[in-house]
């Protein structure tokens, strides 16, 4: 899928959780949201994007995506 779109969507999620004063909770909130609502294909692609540098992602989103667990296929 269009990676810019996935990055924008992940950033939107991180912008919501940015209000959470507890950093660990914010990261977990994003990770949990991506896991519960995103198709594994999208998570896999976003994770690969982070591995490749994660251009465009907010630091918070990047941190959460790193913690996302997704099966390799």
């Amino acid at each position: 899928m269009n990676i810019e779109r996935l990055v924008a969507m992940a950033n939107d999620i991180s912008n919501y959780f940015a209000a959470e004063p507890d950093h660990a909770m914010a990261v977990e909130g994003i990770r949990d949201h991506l896991t519960k609502f995103w198709d594994p294909v999208m998570r896999r692609q976003l994770k690969a994007h982070v591995t490749a540098g994660g251009d465009g992602l907010t630091p918070l989103a990047r941190e959460a995506v790193e913690r996302v667990v997704v099966s390799p296929n």
Partner: peptide, 18 residues
Amino acid sequence: DEPGLRIPNMFEAALDGS
């Protein structure tokens, strides 16, 4: 046990051929 595609995701997936 994993979520599937939402409508806008379906469009994106259609455009990338999957």
